[in-house]
Amino acid sequence: MPVIDRIELYFVKAPLPAPFAPSWMPGLVREAITFYLVRFVTDEGVEGWSAFTSGGRERAGLGDTLANLFLGENPENIDRLCERIHIMAVGGSFNWWLEPAFWDIKAKMAGLPLYKLLGGTHDRLKLYASGGELKDTGARREEAETRYAEGFETMKVRVHDFDEKVDIEHISDIALHMQGRMKISVDCNQAFRLTQFAEAPQWSLERAKRFVDAAADVGLAWVEEPLFGEWHEEIARLTAYSRVPIAGGELHVMGAPELIRMAKMGCYNIYQPDAMFAGGVKQGLDVAKACRDLGLKFTPHTWTNGFGLIVNAHVHAASGFADETLFEYPLAEPGWVPEGRDAIIREPFHHDRGWFNMPEAPGLGFEIDHEKLARYGRCFFKASRREVHWMPQALAEIV
């Protein structure tokens, strides 16, 4: 039986090609992509990688917990490993982003790309372009024209203004401008509140109703997260009211149990759990199955980094929905592009005229660019079944 023999933790801070101002974090301008990177290695030398977005040193003390919970464990026993991630959550730390690394190992040991190990047969995913910044109407038209010329048939825009008339004007303008050529959807980013840099609006049910009415009038493809994520009853009432599909579910850290309960309540028409936040690969597929049983739609969220993109691509390719729903492709030029988003991945994940070609290499299907990892990252914790090494100075040098 293979066992996890070694663990390494890195902090990575890689420059973006241009500043990026995410719509969901008012007041923040990012000039670098930052994330924690984990490497699990079996006693047979098989590696599993994953990474999770970060703000700073919030996961600096994770090493001892990982060593105590995972060293000596069988990397193919996903259920047991997920139980141990649950143990971490008892202490208030949700780390579902670790789970894909174990799938990376398991699929490599099987000699298959993960989506095929999971029973998927779709080696190409049809994409929608997912913008991440607020823009004025002129700049948004230019962005849509560019995405359309690149082969995308659907684009998601962002709204986040205190004045609801501004939000409605923006979706109406771009939908009518691209009418007959490109479908438009919108992410309202109301399901969670990130207000540490600036205040943000919080929509009421009545405001959300007025917005979805406007969205339906101009033919939007869907409206994403128009209400706070914990307001399950209000979300269900809005979805029952709306003439346009309502989507959401990306950051529900309780995973499949919560999302399936929400599905049974009628909270969303389209479920978008992100494996890095909302329960991992296995629970993402559990949600997809529940959506199938309940007559709902499924497609994962992907806005973290290149690791999150490829993990969720495997989930979507194996979900049974790959020929029914579009897969999210984050792209917000000039700052958030594959070379920056994917940072230390040797071959960034580019699209092919609005399609994504699934990797065919075993596991998650990518290689780490170790030269870039050495340039932009620092290993601050190493452990094996024989010894443990903390390197706190390495973390201090880069954060």
Rank of each mutant, 00 (worst) to 15 (best):
L326V: 02
W96R: 06
E199F: 08
R292D: 12
R6S: 13
Y36C: 04
G119D: 03
R158C: 12
H351L: 09
L117I: 04
E360M: 09
L309D: 04
S204T: 14
N357A: 10
C82K: 14
M358V: 07
A101Q: 04
W336T: 06
A129M: 06
P300R: 01
W336I: 13
G249N: 04
A278R: 02
L127H: 03
V399H: 04
R378V: 05
H86K: 15
I260H: 10
V399D: 06
W303M: 14
G266I: 01
L37M: 13
I171K: 02
V41F: 02
A200R: 07
G61W: 06
D187L: 08
D43G: 09
L238K: 05
L395F: 15
V337T: 15
T195I: 12
F11L: 12
A208C: 13
I270K: 02
R237M: 08
G132I: 03
K209N: 08
F327R: 00
L331C: 11
R341F: 15
S204R: 01
K116W: 07
N95K: 13
A21Q: 08
N189W: 01
M1F: 05
L114Q: 03
G229Q: 06
L114I: 02
R385Q: 15
Y376V: 06
C267F: 00
A215L: 10
V253T: 14
E397F: 07
P245T: 08
A175V: 04
I174D: 02
P22A: 09
